[in-house]
Amino acid sequence: MSDPLLIRRARRDEAAALSDLAMRAKAHWGYDDAFMEMCRDELTIHPERIETGEVWVAERDGAAIGLLEVRFEEDGEAEVQHCFVDPSAMASGIGRRLWAKAEDIARAAGVAAIGVDSDPNAEGFYQAMGAVTVARSPSGSIPGRTLPRLRKRLAPSAA
Rank of each mutant, 00 (worst) to 15 (best):
E123Q: 15
V57D: 06
F125C: 00
D104P: 01
F125R: 03
Y31S: 02
A15V: 12
K152A: 10
Y31H: 11
L98S: 10
H46T: 07
A102K: 00
A155S: 15
L154R: 01
F84I: 04
A22W: 03
E69K: 09
A135R: 11
D86Y: 05
I50Y: 11
T146K: 04
R153C: 05
D3V: 05
R153I: 06
L67A: 00
E42P: 00
R40N: 07
D75N: 10
A10T: 10
E48C: 00
A108Y: 05
D33V: 04
P47V: 08
G62P: 02
D86C: 06
D32Q: 04
K101Y: 01
E74S: 12
D104N: 09
L147W: 01
P148Q: 09
R136H: 09
P4F: 11
A109E: 14
S2G: 09
S157R: 15
T52I: 11
A27F: 09
G115T: 12
L98K: 10
D119C: 03
D104W: 05
L68Y: 06
E123D: 13
D119R: 04
R40W: 10
A102P: 02
C39L: 09
R8N: 03
N121F: 10
P47W: 09
P120L: 14
A155D: 15
M38Y: 03
T44G: 06
E59G: 05
H46N: 04
M90I: 08
L98A: 09
E59M: 05
I65H: 02
S141Q: 08
P120S: 12
V70P: 05
E73S: 04
L150I: 00
E42C: 00
E59H: 07
A25S: 15
V80S: 01
A91I: 01
A10K: 07
R96K: 15
I45P: 00
M38K: 15
R49A: 13
L43C: 04
A108F: 07
E48G: 05
R8E: 13
S141D: 12
I50M: 12
G93D: 14
Y31T: 01
H82L: 13
Q127M: 12
T44N: 07
V70K: 08
D32Y: 02
A112R: 12
G76S: 08
D13C: 05
W29L: 12
C39R: 06
S19T: 15
A64I: 04
A128W: 11
R49F: 10
T133V: 14
G66A: 14
R12Q: 11
G95Y: 00
C83W: 03
A128T: 14
C83R: 02
V132C: 04
L21E: 10
V55T: 15
